[in-house]
């Protein structure tokens, strides 16, 4: 990237070319967090087979860091068991993104919360 931007190259890449963005048909679980009043809102879709996340998709209303955090999270989730997935912390998302400005750490927290919300949704359906 030849132009200077306020985020790391990885963040800018995920913002400009978000991975796994879009809707999912018949998801096994959906996690909704945030709201537009807070400036960000994330919806995470998971397809789970035999306890393994086989697909993850997202839709996000938010700043560059929020979109990049969502995109990175979905990449990290694919192929993981639910147990492994739940161990992913917001710090790991930040690390994978090559860092986030202090004021934007909450975007990665939102990603972690969306994951927890999706897993809760899955577990409540299983019961």
């Amino acid at each position: 990237m030849d132009k200077p931007f306020p985020y790391s190259e990885i963040v800018m890449d995920h913002f400009a070319n978000p991975r796994n963005m879009g809707d999912m048909e018949n998801p096994s679980a959906v996690g909704n967090v945030g709201n537009p009043a807070c400036g960000d809102m994330m919806r995470l879709f998971l397809k789970i087979e035999n306890g393994v996340i086989v697909d993850a998709k997202f839709k996000t209303f938010g700043c560059g860091a929020a979109i990049a955090s969502s995109s990175m999270l979905t990449e990290m989730l694919k192929g993981k068991t639910l147990e492994e997935a739940l161990k992913i912390s917001n710090e790991e998302v930040v690390k994978a993104l090559g860092g986030l400005p202090e004021a934007k750490i909450h975007c990665s927290v939102m990603a972690e919360e969306a994951l927890k919300a999706a897993v809760n949704d899955y577990e409540s359906k299983e019961e």
């Binding site: 132009k3 931007f5 800018m12 913002f15 400009a16 400036g39 960000d40 700043c63 560059g64 929020a66």
Partner: peptide, 13 residues
């Protein structure tokens, strides 16, 4: 439905 900063970043790109 869209956030200002992400539009600013896209504009800048």
């Amino acid at each position: 439905h869209i956030e200002g900063e992400s539009l600013l970043l896209l504009l800048s790109m």
